[in-house]
Computed example of a mutant assay.
Amino acid sequence: MQTSECKLLVTLAEEMNMRKAAERLFVSQPALSQRVQSIEKNWDTQIFIRSQKGLTLTPAGEKIIEYARDVVIKEEKVKEEIHSLNTMVHGTLKLAVASIIGQHWLPNVLKQFVQKYPHAKISLITGWSSEILKHLYEGQVHVGIIRGTPDWKGVKHHILADTLYLVDTEIKSLDELQSTERPFIQFKSDSTYYQEIQDWWHRQFDHPPKRTIVVDQIETCKQMAFHGIGYAILPSITFHEDDPAVYKIPLFDETGLPAKRDTWLLGYESAFELKQVEAFMKIIK
């Protein structure tokens, strides 16, 4: 197969829907269907089973898609290696970043990157730290930025440590938590953040919060606390100068030091040899 056909099949396997794949590939749905039929004819086997619900891979199709994905990845790798031979920074910088970092820290860094290296491209994935590690292990990205202390054998750089605060529009001291009826607003996380908050709470109090509200995003948690719905524990990275006035009470760990959250940049040694990754590291430093 030609590389373009491999990319077509990979896109179809990602979407498992002819219409969505056609939109991504900027072709009409009939034209895409015709190309798939041509590829299947060349392989002399059916790759996809079509139905009203979408596409399903046949056993032979799974093998062919695996081959196509390998071709696409190898082509990208060769292109990156060729670009790295040039003095100008080219290629695509592939990042997987924890959502909170993508929202509050990364935009300023990427702004400087695109201004200084206009010929480089950026591919960005955001999500939970466990998802970031998965993308790294599978070789889908050059660099991952996660929250918490990572169990990583490759290259890792400490990016920042931000302090934790209890935030509320009414509560002025931690002593008030023992009697307040205000709900504790928490956000879901697969990192160690949730456990760290639980440990801190049990060191301070003998009983759990009287009322809790659990939301799916830290930004939702912040906005609810800032609008007076309840109190939350938030890292300082989420605060901005234009935020409304609220009480921010610093938390301390068991040693009496300010409670903090670490952010780490991870990657394999080979990735840091690429010029676009080297350029990104220069911006960070």
Rank of each mutant, 00 (worst) to 15 (best):
V155N: 03
Y194D: 10
I122N: 04
T92C: 10
E138A: 15
T149H: 13
K188I: 01
G91H: 10
P107L: 10
Q178E: 12
H142A: 12
I146R: 05
S129I: 01
D175H: 08
H119W: 04
V97P: 03
N86F: 12
Q140L: 12
T169F: 01
I122K: 07
E80P: 06
A161Y: 02
H135S: 08
K134I: 08
I101D: 06
T192M: 06
L95K: 06
L124S: 06
E170L: 06
L110M: 04
E181Q: 15
V143Q: 00
I82N: 08
V143K: 01
Y194N: 03
K94L: 03
F113S: 03
D175E: 15
S84V: 06
V89T: 11
L166S: 01
L110V: 07
Q178R: 13
V155H: 12
I171F: 14
Q140T: 13
G148M: 12
Q115L: 14
L85M: 07
V89A: 14
I100E: 09
D175C: 00
T180C: 15
Q115P: 02
E80Y: 05
S191I: 11
E170A: 08
L93V: 03
T92R: 09
L124E: 00
E176M: 13
Q103F: 11
L106T: 04
H119P: 09
H157F: 08
D175G: 01
F184L: 13
G139M: 12
E81R: 11
D175P: 02
Q103V: 15
M88H: 13
L93Y: 01
V167E: 00
N108T: 10
R182K: 14
L136H: 11
Y117R: 07
I185A: 10
K156H: 09
V141S: 04
S84N: 15
D190F: 10
I101Y: 03
Y193Q: 08
G102P: 02
A96T: 08
L106P: 06
H83G: 15
H119Y: 10
V109F: 04
E80H: 10
L93G: 07
K153L: 13
K121W: 05
I146N: 04
S123W: 05
E181V: 09
H158D: 00
L85F: 04
E81F: 02
L106G: 13
H83Y: 15
H90C: 08
Q112G: 07
E80V: 12
D162L: 03
F187C: 15
W152R: 01
R182F: 14
T126G: 00
K153R: 05
D151L: 03
D162E: 14
T163M: 04
I125S: 07
Y117H: 14
G154P: 03
K153P: 11
A161T: 10
E170C: 09
S189D: 14
D190W: 02
G139T: 09
I100R: 00
L160E: 12
L160D: 08
K156M: 15
N108K: 05
S123G: 09
G154F: 06
G148D: 05
Y194P: 06
I132N: 03
G127E: 01
P150W: 00
S123V: 10
L164R: 00
A120E: 06
W105V: 14
G127Y: 02
V141H: 07
W152L: 04
T87L: 11
H142D: 15
I145M: 12
H157L: 07
L95P: 02
L95F: 02
L85G: 05
H119A: 11
I122E: 10
E80N: 15
G154D: 03
H119I: 05
G144K: 01
D162K: 07
